[in-house]
Design a protein around this nucleic acid. Structure first.
Lengths: 249, 249
DNA sequence: GCATATTTGTCCGTATGTATA
DNA sequence: CTATACATACGGACAAATATG
């Protein structure tokens, strides 16, 4: 009677998420098997193929991907360190199910880092501002063609580009991980389409302000963006937790 | 002729660092063997027992600590993800040797995060300011008794306490890792004593400014601190790299 | 430049302890 | 409470890559 993290009927439902993977290749290139394993699982998790709460049983996943359990466990350690999965002592690893506290923590981190990065826009590394513009254009193109999944991807890449204004590799890496976590939250929302759509225009506005050197205004717009997004996600999570024991298709 | 990371006579000199460890305990408590392994190695690395560049050969370390090679590799993945060690494909894992670029990157990260955290001092979580004061007192006590190693520890804990003003667990974790990396740089310096000593007083000053609510002045003092420390470390690294092929006691 | 020894990368089988039905 | 399933950790094996003489 510890926790009921898992919907209790959904464990080991990873056949769906891992089905279309050409995993049966015990061959290694430059990166090494473990790193590629982590890439595959990370992609599956962030793309929504393995929704929050699903258990990643060693034997099943190892067989599905054509690797040994030892190798897989090494990849699990990486993902656990990135907080994409949780490692419960003698129970196994599960795709993380972020709660309201996680959302608040992620957004305090984002507010601090992203706003400070924008304030540093003057002395940003060359090409950083251009990258922001490029991502905004990609987002608008995706929105025009109603490719909402790509819109969500572009949104996260936009904010990665914002962080890149600070010019620190470690900061970039950290925020990339945090934004990957945030994707888990997106997949817990009702319909991600509606969520991302209004932010396309707001991102474009922020980008324009940064380009024009109006950093204070840009920071203000960014703060408003983050506050709105956080609020929306928190209400989304609250709704989800009330309809707890329903059947999940 | 790739790199000369290792002093070429110092590889596998981990007998010194791992000698006094009660590693021969194949018993697991709450945390799990892998996590404890990582703790042991992390401590050894940050305390200077395993200086930058030393190779951590799987067989030797596994035997010294009384664990299997597979288990040890899982711990290595964690440390590699924390950037305390580097994993060279088919060559092994080595204690990281930070270069000037790393120092610059670490300090841009610190400038951004720590200054922003101080600016958030008004709405900091309760007890955060008191913790800063406590660490400053500990540092002054250690300095009075010439326990320079403890002074260095207190210095890093001081800055962790600064970051805690932001009130984000993820930010705390990230900066704890960055500061652990910074310890590697300290151990590359000539004498760490001289390095830490002057900062005891400066930390106390910053703490006082934070307590009095003079955040702007506190940020200014913190920035000056970080700039000076970075400059000092960069010159220290430059000196070290010029006397490259000397015998190392 | 080549042959050999060492080390890593990956796999398998297995014993033990833990959690759950 | 027993039984089953699973994670944990170990040890050995082999191929591949690297380092050494």
């Amino acid at each position: 009677m510890t926790q009921e993290i898992i919907p209790a009927g959904k464990r080991l439902a990873l056949s769906s998420g891992l089905a279309g993977l050409s995993g049966a290749r015990p061959l290694l290139d430059r990166t090494g098997t473990v790193a590629r394993l982590a890439d595959i699982l990370r992609a599956q998790i962030t793309e929504g193929g393995l929704p929050p709460g699903t258990q990643l049983a060693e034997h099943a996943v190892a067989e599905a991907l054509g690797v040994s359990r030892n190798t897989l466990r090494e990849a699990f350690r990486l993902l656990a360190h990135e907080e994409l999965v949780v490692h419960e002592p003698h129970r196994g690893v599960f795709v993380r199910t972020p709660d309201a506290g996680d959302v608040r923590d992620i957004y305090t981190t984002r507010r601090l880092v992203e706003c400070a990065a924008v304030r540093n826009a003057d002395s940003a590394p060359s090409g950083a501002v251009a990258e922001i513009r490029a991502v905004v254009n990609a987002a608008q193109a995706a929105a025009a063609e109603q490719r909402w999944n790509d819109v969500g991807t572009a949104d996260l890449r936009f904010h990665s580009a914002i962080v890149a204004l600070a010019g620190s590799r470690r900061l970039n890496d950290m925020m990339r991980r945090v934004l990957a976590e945030l994707r888990l939250v997106f997949h817990m929302m009702a319909d991600p389409h509606r969520f991302h759509e209004p932010y396309v225009h707001r991102n474009a506005e922020i980008a324009a302000l940064v380009e024009r050197g109006e950093t204070d205004a840009a920071v203000g717009a960014l703060l408003a963006y983050l506050d709105d997004a956080e609020r929306q996600l928190l209400t989304g999570i609250a709704e989800r937790s009330t309809q707890s024991s329903e059947s999940i298709t």
